[in-house]
């Protein structure tokens, strides 16, 4: 999955998905196609999002492919930064927290294997940490 997310180490910037941007049409794409679909002009590689909310999701409980854990969660996330709806994996450790509307942020970690069977990095979304209750401080 080369070129679809920023690579570690992450210092100041959180991990982000990389997509395309057409400055003429003001259009964002993920993943980045070869040309802008509206004007066929060139696209700039750009960060399309690090945070968002869940539009829908499911938990797949059978025949996990590509070394993914069983069960595993996938869904569509609405990216806060660009408004794109994108398909993604969810954090395997937080499947019980998934619900429509849940705020999530991107993580990149070793998850499953690539098509050659080697462990590989995958982007996935994980629930935003819950803000501590200001009243208790």
């Amino acid at each position: 999955m080369p070129g679809i997310f920023t690579l570690p180490p992450y210092d100041d910037e959180p991990p982000a998905l990389l997509g395309g941007f057409c400055p003429v049409c003001n259009a964002y794409y993920f993943p980045r196609p070869k040309y802008c679909r509206a004007c066929l002009g060139p696209l700039k590689e750009t960060r399309v999002g690090s945070e968002g909310s869940i539009y829908s999701f499911t938990i797949v409980r059978k025949k996990a492919p590509l070394g993914l854990p069983q069960p595993y969660g996938v869904g569509y996330v609405i990216l806060k930064e660009t408004g794109l709806f994108i398909f993604s994996l969810f954090d395997p450790a937080t499947l019980d927290k998934l619900r429509i509307g849940l705020p999530v942020r991107l993580a990149v970690n070793t998850l499953g294997v690539d098509i050659n069977g080697s462990p590989c990095l995958r982007p996935y979304f994980t629930p935003m940490p819950v803000m501590s209750d200001p009243g208790k401080i």
């Binding site: 679809i4 938990i59 797949v60 025949k63 996938v74 429509i100 690539d114």
Partner: peptide, 29 residues
């Protein structure tokens, strides 16, 4: 045989999308 998917040249497939997942997401929405 695994679940039916769109082929390994698709990003969605590499991210775990298979036919039942698509329709699970549709059903929930």
């Amino acid at each position: 045989a695994g679940l039916v998917d769109a082929g390994l040249d698709e990003l969605d497939t590499l991210l775990g999308l298979a036919a039942p997942a698509t329709f699970g997401m549709r059903a929930r929405r």
